[in-house]
Design a protein around this nucleic acid. Sequence first.
DNA 1: TTTT
DNA 2: TTTT
Lengths: 142, 142, 142, 142
Amino acid sequence: MNKAIIVGNLTRDPELRATGSGISVCSFTVAVNRRFKDQNGETQADFIPVVVWRQQGENCAKYLSKGSKVAVCGAIQVRSYDAQDGSKRYATEIVADEVQFLNSRGEGAAPQPRQERPAPKAPASMQFDDDLHPVEDDDLPF
Amino acid sequence: MNKAIIVGNLTRDPELRATGSGISVCSFTVAVNRRFKDQNGETQADFIPVVVWRQQGENCAKYLSKGSKVAVCGAIQVRSYDAQDGSKRYATEIVADEVQFLNSRGEGAAPQPRQERPAPKAPASMQFDDDLHPVEDDDLPF
Amino acid sequence: MNKAIIVGNLTRDPELRATGSGISVCSFTVAVNRRFKDQNGETQADFIPVVVWRQQGENCAKYLSKGSKVAVCGAIQVRSYDAQDGSKRYATEIVADEVQFLNSRGEGAAPQPRQERPAPKAPASMQFDDDLHPVEDDDLPF
Amino acid sequence: MNKAIIVGNLTRDPELRATGSGISVCSFTVAVNRRFKDQNGETQADFIPVVVWRQQGENCAKYLSKGSKVAVCGAIQVRSYDAQDGSKRYATEIVADEVQFLNSRGEGAAPQPRQERPAPKAPASMQFDDDLHPVEDDDLPF
DNA sequence: TTTT
DNA sequence: TTTT
């Protein structure tokens, strides 16, 4: 069992990339306010990276933008990698099962596509091979 | 809203420390198996750091050990800090609200204290001041 | 472990009552849309009862109204009782730990009190004794 | 968003039925202990109905039995129906996405099939037509 | 109605 | 019974 549910706002516009074989993957960070203020009375937030695969990721890229409020449900994924200095580093993110749009460009209105733009295509410099990677991919393009 | 629920096994014995003013904090890592195997048929796991404060943390230190199975509910916390090389790093962990023991030393038996040992005391080299830190502490002793 | 997290809209204005000793308890129902439409293409929803105790319940009564969007986290509680015909009945609701207001009268604006009104007081006909009831009360006034 | 996660024990052996077209559905009730005892010092529990569809439901019927400990993740579903006396009744259950076996007949051992038995077949008296019912079926055979 |  |  590995479930995370967060509600918060995007810190930036989402980024859409694709694996070499054309699987879409969208990534963004959600600012989640903590329930209690710090000792200075300041609101604190956790900044939680989220990735969304395939059609759902494309919808996120299309309808969400900086400031959009979302509810995300998914699994916590911890990837470890070796830094250039040889040390072990960890990258933690939520791999989303569901993303619910709580306001994209104005609560009450149906979400509008963020912009007309050509079909997302990762630049060659970002492409990588995903032949071996099904849904449970561990080799994310970011 | 910021909720994470995981079920898995401790990768090591838990560590118990204390803030300078004597607030207990227990930390351990939970290995959470993924639902699907990788392309080699190997079970994959995410290794998720957990921290537990106060009495509940003391109970974890007392009753859990390497391999214990737990269900943890809490909030995802992302702390950012500056690495020695000046770069920004992130540490992500679950700050537990609840830890349910699913088998500590044998399912079916009441959990037994892991060992008789003196009251937990952080070594001087680890102590730090927590005068400014209520529950929503951002300055963890690890 | 018993956690439920829902996001949806209030079907009616919340109701605020109090136990005999003055503990506030707020109740409302949240309509949660299902992810998939039924075979007629109609959106389906689950209508989930929620109860919120004490100060947090008072805040719900003050700031929420029919249609308000909320995120609720809590525990599923199943109360059994004997119907007048002698049969066993079950009442299921979420006892909230947290209620996050996602739009009460206009997203982006601070929630406004729903109305000026006197301090909530249960009518005598609804009062009941709560001398024996701490937080984990099983004898709700509704 | 509609997520529930519970950890507890089956109150009875699971029941496996099938729709008219042969879709398996398994049902059982999970006793989930509350965190706090009542005023008499007694452990209280909520008894939460769970349904599991298809292959996963068949696995539950095969490997689980009374007393088995499980973690269940799913959605809260509230079905309303008209009682014979004309009144409105509600049935609430968790429709499972995931069921994790935490001990079926002995933690640490691989779960053993509960019994050898013929492929599950609903008796004719229970069969019903599911031609119109995909996964999001509202017409459960129980 | 479970379990520890 | 909500909402988009």
